[in-house]
Amino acid sequence: MGEAYVPVEAGLGFEESFLSLGDILMSQERLPCRAEIALPRLAAVLGKAGPEPLAAVPEGTKLEIPLWLAKGLYDNKRRILSVELPKIYRESWRTVFSADANVIDLHKLGPFYYGFGSQLLNFDSPENVEIAQTILQTFIGRFRRIMDSSQNTYNEDTSVLVARLDELERVLFQVGQKGLNDFQSWERGQAQITATDLVQKYRKIKFIDLDS
């Protein structure tokens, strides 16, 4: 009830949430790119540093750069950078996803499959529609299993169940678990309305103040 710290949720879709730790981690994931023009003085920044620190990155260089940087450099009018689709968003993998999304270890392949995939749509790939469709259908296809596993497991080690889930699915799993756990502990008579941690601490502080 009275959580003192409520984490900022990750954004999804085109919008990242600026203050979400999850999104900061997600946007740190690397994306394969190609420099379409020479990028002066950026060799060191882009991890291609030779002996000369302020050297240019030559046109045609293959780069692996974080999503946030790729977003910053990408411009659909001036071709500075072209973005390659990571393999799990390509057609061959999309076929695997549509066959049975439940068997896939999204954590190993992701772990930000949905968030990162949604962000990829910022780069105007001709396959955008198919990517968006696959991501959505994957979520729908995996929903039942996440719901059932999160709502059936009480007081058990859940690490096996969440091992193959993407980060977004893990958050969802925890929400389901909380619903179940709260109910079960209520049923056993362990849940009562109590003062929040903050209030309890505050009372202690006041107490100490009076003493001194």
Partner: peptide, 14 residues
């Protein structure tokens, strides 16, 4: 879950 799904669907309407 429905909120997530909705956002994933808005991806389809750039």
């Amino acid at each position: 879950a429905l909120d997530h799904m909705y956002k994933l669907r808005t991806n389809l309407q750039p």
